[in-house]
């Protein structure tokens, strides 16, 4: 484990069980300022459960999550957001009946605590800031289109702009490139890496695409059946025999019974909180 004196995020002893299944068991890690940390693992490893506990969507059974020394456990997602933690979802969540620009404006309006303003038009609030953010993610040209008609890859970019609206110190990105074409994935991750470096935002992301992971992360953690089993630089993790065994099944045949149905239940339960 890297020794960081003043981490942005410090997670200790994080655990969650669903029934008898340990979806996440005693997870510990740190995240440094400006660092891109990837959390990988096979299906049902507990990545999404872990994520949902970090931003307050799911209460952990035990453990602590500290953002710059401040305890986040027990807070609601919106309180966590106010402290500067942005979040993107595995399945995009945007306001379909609003334009791209209005989606970003809503986040800015909330950030500036103006949601109860009754008179001035929404479109006149923070329009320049919204356009600047959209420009940064390459969506300025589509600013006036409705989110309901956008392509999926574009929605992911909108979500990124929305997540940047409250000047976060930390971004939690759950499968940022899920559902995208291969070239789009590379582009989106390169864009994200560029933005977070220039603003020195820390990022924790989960990802299935190993090309994306090894190309853009500073550090990789591997979760398997709720436990952290490896952690280190992309090259080190790639060379780790245990990781290879998890991903490739160490020569065993398909459907190794080491993947019990129970872990998929845990993932389903964790996924259920998305719905």
């Amino acid at each position: 484990m890297t020794n960081v004196s003043n981490p942005v995020l410090a997670v200790r002893g994080l655990s969650k069980s669903f029934g008898g299944v340990h979806a996440v068991a005693d997870v510990n890690f740190f995240l440094d300022a400006g660092e891109l940390l990837a959390l990988i693992g096979p299906n049902g490893a507990g990545k999404t459960t872990c994520f949902n506990m970090l931003n307050g969507q799911l209460p952990p059974d035990a453990g602590s999550v500290k953002l710059q020394g401040r305890e986040l456990v027990g807070m609601t997602p919106r309180q966590v957001w106010r402290l500067g933690v942005g979040r993107t979802f595995q399945i995009t969540a945007t306001f379909a009946s609003m334009t791209v620009r209005e989606n970003v404006q809503m986040a800015l309006i909330s950030h500036h605590k103006r949601i109860r303003a009754l008179w001035r038009r929404t479109g006149d609030h923070y329009a320049d800031e919204a356009l600047a953010l959209l420009d940064r993610v390459g969506m300025a040209e589509q600013a006036e289109r409705a989110c309901g008609v956008l392509a999926y890859g574009d929605l992911k970019r909108v979500e990124l702009a929305v997540a940047l609206a409250n000047e976060p110190q930390l971004l939690l990105m759950d499968e940022p490139t899920a559902g995208m074409a291969p070239q789009e994935r590379i582009d989106l991750m390169a864009l994200t890496a560029g933005i977070v470096r220039e603003r020195s935002i820390s990022v924790l992301f989960t990802e299935h695409d190993m090309d994306v992971v090894f190309a853009h992360s500073d550090r990789v953690m591997v979760l398997n059946r709720g436990e952290l089993v490896a952690e280190g630089s992309p090259a080190a993790v790639r060379a780790d025999p245990l990781v290879q065994e998890i991903y490739l099944g160490a020569g065993s045949t398909f459907g190794s019974d080491e993947q019990p149905a129970a872990t998929t239940t845990a993932d389903a339960a964790a996924g259920g909180t998305h719905a």
Partner: peptide
């Protein structure tokens, strides 16, 4: 707009601090 936002996606509204 905040009201409409909640109708469109309660998840996202919560995630932007509302």
């Amino acid at each position: 707009y905040t009201l409409r936002a909640g109708r469109d996606s309660a998840l996202r509204v919560d995630a932007i601090g509302i």
